[in-house]
Simulated assay, not measured.
Amino acid sequence: MTRLIDPGIGGAITLDDLVEALETTPFDPHDEDSFAALGPLLARLGRNRDFLADLAIAELKTRCAGQSAANSYGAQVFLLRPPNRRFVLRANFWPSGDDGIVQASGTAPFVYGMAHDHNFPFLTYGYLGPGYWSDYWEHDPDRPEQPMRFTGRRRIEPGQLMLYRMCRDVHAQLPPDAFSVTLNILGSHPSHRWIDQHRFDPATGAIADVLTTAPSEGLATIATHLGGGNGLDLIDHLARRHPHPRMRATALAALASARPDCPEAMALIARAAPDHPALDPSAADRVQPIRAKAPCGPGDSIRSRDTVA
């Protein structure tokens, strides 16, 4: 279950104060207690009732130039500062089911009703409104084959502080009773881009989809299909030697898709399966390869020469 944190009693601080504190405070986003200790700082920003309105007004005056330049999220997210290598600060908007934007666009743009985990930890604070509701589950990342366990429905109350644990806490957000806003500190680490985020099936408790994508996945496919022998050698090197299992699986899938008529393709997918649960031999028919100009025939196997130090 998500962890409720005592927000403390410190007075309101500015956004600059929070940024300075985060930049000078050592913390480890992979250590639950270390990251949770930042929570009272977020709560102190939450007691500042003016800063978010001031930021919104300033953005509107510049036709949202700051958000357009740095915000890679959708319209539901307002970046409080450009992303930092150790943390991200944002405000999230949660319209109710009766709000005009939901009536016009439906609930999908706000990810309402989709059970998912996160490949990073984050702290959230109820800043405005009654708070959105969520159904909560807990999932053991060390036993991905085990179904998640339902832990209840609740909402984040005004002034409440909560920690979402990376890869463990699963939730499906539901519209609040009235428009609400939460504030977030997201833990950031270079390893997070290699960690999968999942959508879950509440009916079975099982992982339904992998939501994470990375530019390397498309680049690996381009290299195998268009890069000739040099591209194949490079991707094969990554498949065998890259330190992270996700990249090894990505490279193996790319190699298999580049040689769809080769008997090695099924073997490559099977080799990738331990590193990436979505790639298993029974799922091979879901791989949509781009047909290579010269599918491998007798004596034309995928080479394993190491060309990268």
Rank of each mutant, 00 (worst) to 15 (best):
190 P>Y: 05
186 L>H: 15
302 I>M: 11
104 A>E: 15
203 A>T: 10
194 W>A: 04
110 F>P: 02
248 R>I: 08
48 N>K: 14
24 T>R: 04
51 F>M: 08
271 R>L: 15
186 L>P: 03
297 G>Y: 01
11 G>R: 12
9 I>F: 06
284 A>I: 10
97 G>D: 11
88 V>T: 14
211 L>T: 06
225 H>M: 04
167 C>N: 10
125 Y>M: 11
99 D>A: 06
227 G>F: 08
186 L>V: 10
258 A>S: 15
296 C>Y: 05
172 A>W: 06
189 H>W: 08
206 A>Y: 07
158 P>Y: 02
56 A>T: 15
174 L>Y: 00
24 T>I: 06
6 D>G: 03
306 D>S: 12
166 M>Q: 11
270 A>Q: 13
137 W>Q: 05
135 D>G: 01
171 H>K: 11
19 V>R: 13
167 C>Q: 13
294 A>M: 02
88 V>P: 03
75 A>L: 12
232 L>C: 01
300 D>M: 14
20 E>S: 07
181 V>R: 06
140 D>F: 02
300 D>Q: 14
125 Y>K: 13
276 H>W: 12
162 M>P: 10
29 P>C: 05
264 E>I: 00
206 A>C: 09
95 P>S: 08
96 S>G: 11
13 I>C: 09
68 S>F: 09
149 R>G: 04
136 Y>E: 15
267 A>T: 15
123 L>K: 08
49 R>Y: 00
290 I>H: 10
293 K>E: 13
64 C>L: 15
36 A>P: 10
180 S>P: 02
134 S>N: 14
156 I>T: 15
3 R>M: 13
231 G>M: 04
13 I>G: 06
148 M>A: 09
241 R>S: 14
59 E>L: 04
165 R>H: 13
95 P>W: 07
39 G>D: 01
29 P>K: 01
304 S>F: 08
102 V>R: 13
134 S>A: 15
248 R>C: 09
240 R>D: 14
122 F>T: 01
145 E>F: 11
299 G>N: 08
74 G>I: 03
75 A>P: 01
190 P>Q: 13
210 V>N: 05
39 G>T: 03
218 G>H: 13
66 G>I: 04
288 Q>P: 06
145 E>T: 11
304 S>W: 03
226 L>Q: 06
